[in-house]
Computed example of a mutant assay.
Amino acid sequence: MRESRDKTRRRFLAAAGAASTTALAGCTSILGGDGSSSDDRPTLADFRGSGEIVSDRPAPGGTSIEDLPDLEGELSIYLGGGEGGRYTTLIDLLNQYYDDFEASAQTQPSSQLANVIVDEHESGTTQADVFWSVDAGSLAYVADNDATRDLSSDATSMVADDRFVTDQWAGVAGRSRAVPYNTNQFSASEIPTSVDGIATDDQFTGSLGWAPTYGAFHGFVTAMRQLRGDDGTREWLNNMLDQSPARYDSEYATVSQGITNGEVGLGLTNHYYPILVFASNPDAPLDLAFTENDAGALVNTAGASVLDGAGDPDLAELFVRHLLSAEAQEFLATRGFAFPMIEGVEPVGPLPTIDELSPPDIDLQSLSDVQPTIELLEDVGILS
């Protein structure tokens, strides 16, 4: 958190719209000198996304796949979420890169898989080697129930920020809460720097959109409970209800349908949903802002752990290290617009770095305490 942070609200996506489409720059990792693959394996160009928003990027730093031991054998992954199929695409690329490696994934919501893992651990019937979850809360829940193995320093030292790694799991793709807004309805200076302003300012009455059944929203409310207690969180939720927010099935729909189409003026989502919409529609009247030092500025992470009972724990940990390779981090940054977890890989052009954000001081392990959040949302009348 930078105390000297410029308080002037800036437009992030406007800067991206001015970018030009050029050839990928500096693609040296896993490439031959002429920019072509030295064999039939995927190249950096296969890992990296495309389009204006990711043009002119330098070659990623960090540990290349070439510098890691080969993945060999079969691996079973419990994949919590999947981010619209992007995570399975990354798994497929690793399968293609190594002739003697085959990873398969079973995909369900992270919270459901976390319960499955704990049940299997307690009965001695663990069915997977790796748990790759879209949120730290599910990783923490599994670790708290002794269903994971310690990671070695070879894996944990790859993560640049201690907030996003423990002995039991390593963050692989960061995300921040954000406030996307319609630029035809609001200017950057009108967006509050706190979620309290959004919940109480009359100018937002009837102009808000949210997805209160969505898992990311539950993590946000859980963070608020940790910061201000149940009573303070209840007050905020009731204030939001007084604003008559429109409900959407997902936070992506909040942005793509609600804000972009002008149905609502702003919403509360993960930061990458506005980027995903903007990447496919640069003319959309869309931008995003970030609150400061509250639950609305929460920075969470997807991450991975090695399950206790894994058939080949060494292979499982090596897979986690591959998720933190330069190529995999470039994939997650340029295809899913996540915040990279390693040094040497930058977020996509319009995004600030994590260091430029002002997240609250909160232990991500505490986000595993989701059930009281569900009960509170039900009690207030937001969930039935």
Rank of each mutant, 00 (worst) to 15 (best):
S4E: 12
S4C: 05
R5G: 03
R5W: 09
T8R: 15
R11Q: 13
F12G: 01
L13N: 02
S20D: 09
A25N: 13
S29A: 15
I30G: 02
S36L: 07
D40Q: 06
T43E: 13
L44G: 10
A45P: 04
D46M: 04
F47K: 05
F47G: 04
I53P: 00
S55H: 03
S55I: 06
G62A: 06
E66N: 13
D67M: 00
L71P: 07
E74I: 03
I77P: 00
Y78T: 02
Y78I: 03
G80Q: 05
G85Y: 02
L90V: 04
L90Y: 01
I91E: 01
Y97F: 14
L113V: 01
N115A: 13
Q127V: 03
A128E: 08
V130H: 03
S138N: 09
S138G: 10
A140T: 06
D144A: 10
A147K: 00
D150N: 11
D161W: 01
D162F: 02
R163P: 06
R163Y: 08
F164C: 11
G174S: 10
R175A: 14
R177S: 14
A178L: 08
N182I: 14
T183M: 07
S187Q: 15
I198M: 15
A199E: 07
A199G: 13
A199P: 08
D201A: 12
F204S: 02
T205Q: 14
Y214W: 13
A216V: 11
A216R: 01
G219W: 09
F220V: 02
M224N: 14
D242E: 15
D242T: 12
A246V: 09
R247C: 03
Y248M: 08
Y248L: 10
D249W: 07
F278E: 09
A279M: 06
S280G: 15
P282V: 07
P285D: 06
P285G: 00
L288E: 05
E292C: 11
N293W: 06
L298G: 07
T301C: 14
T301G: 05
A302W: 00
G309P: 06
L318H: 06
V320F: 00
L332F: 07
A338S: 13
V345T: 11
P347R: 02
V348C: 05
P350Y: 03
P350E: 03
L351N: 01
L357W: 00
S358M: 12
D361S: 15
D361M: 13
S368A: 15
P372R: 04
E375W: 00
V380I: 12
